[in-house]
Design a protein around this nucleic acid. Structure first.
Lengths: 192, 192
DNA sequence: TATATACTTGAGCGATCACTCAAGAAACCC
DNA sequence: GGGTTTCTTGAGTGATCGCTCAAGTATATA
């Protein structure tokens, strides 16, 4: 049993780096050359490590979605469900570490759905997962008496997620004050 | 002075056809081969007619934006400003003639902004134009006494446009009831 | 240190990209 | 019908696409 050399790179770090590139530039907008340059991997190493451009994209989607779910759940842990839902819009457009404001799942879905690309389905599944997560928070807020029980939590979640997708797209524009929109989305929740 | 033969195609019809392809598949997702096949133009004719892929895309954006502005203005003419704003969300996701639900301006901006592509700027200008159009309707509705004057019409317009962008993206998903979201957006206007 | 194993390198594959251009076909005025 | 001009055609351009693979290099165990 011989143990040969280990890779010189940090796999998780590379996936995070690739995620930022795909997130900003999209699937077709990112070439292997782009990835090789930014990840500092020659073609051979790239394919040994990840198999294909699509396989790496899938890994970055997974990473993106997991972080998103973890963030909202941590927020709910700290602030409670209603305040978490109110805080999320502002936080998501103020996150300075993001390479772009718009949601990567939404961008992926919009770009690849017409091609029936598997990555579009994967993005759609993750968006459904996020929506279910929001619905859970609305339900908890209702249980806590913070939101009137006459509302359907699934419907609230669908509207809330839709608003956030719009907000995050709007946040990329220079002629839009996204903070005002975020504040208005949050104040809508107080009226439920 | 001699007058030679005329083109065999209807230029406006070709632009409309190209618009639907670009709208569905995006900029990078549409190849010259796609366009040549759908428009039934050989490369030579294509370039004689439109100059370049980007030039044709620009023409389709112009066409798309003009139709959008015309539609909302016609709606306001018929229903008045407030009812036009309330009707628009449902109409835009029910339009059966559209190749896809999401807004072409938003898709273009999202895809090409990171590349600093001129087409992204053009899309952004048209979105700003639409927003101004919405603001004008909110102002008219206030003048008519249908919306309380304490609201800032520009802010209402930004939020409304953002909601519609989210709605139209959501309308592409199978797990979302976009009609409910559209109804909720409309009923928000009644509370202003 | 010798050897086995995996990682790294980069030239280069076929396919496709947006695009060009020369030659032939068609429609107009005289 | 003759002559001129434009439109149509499609083979073909160089560049880039995602990707392969054989050769070279580094690191582990024995």
């Amino acid at each position: 049993m011989l143990m040969p050399r280990k890779p010189a790179y940090d796999r998780e770090a590379l996936i995070a780096k690739a995620r930022d590139i795909f997130w900003r530039q999209g699937w077709a907008g990112t070439s292997l050359k782009d990835l090789e340059r930014e990840l500092k991997l020659k073609p051979g190493s790239f394919y040994a490590a990840f198999g294909s451009k699509d396989a790496l994209y899938a890994l970055t989607l997974e990473s993106y979605a997991n972080e998103g779910v973890a963030r909202i759940k941590a927020l709910a842990e700290n602030l409670g469900p209603k305040e978490a839902l109110k805080a999320q819009p502002r936080l998501v457009i103020e996150a300075i570490e993001n390479p772009t404001k718009a949601c990567m799942l939404a961008k992926t879905y919009a770009e690849l759905q017409a091609k029936d690309h598997e990555l579009a389905d994967q993005a759609a599944r993750h968006m459904a997962e996020m929506k279910a997560c929001f619905a859970e928070l609305f339900r908890s807020a209702q249980d806590a008496g913070d939101i009137r029980s006459e509302h359907d939590p699934d419907r609230l979640a669908a509207r809330y997620q839709s608003d956030i997708l719009g907000l995050r797209l709007s946040a990329e524009r220079k002629d839009v004050n996204a903070l005002e929109i975020a504040a208005d989305i949050a104040s809508d929740i107080d009226r439920l």
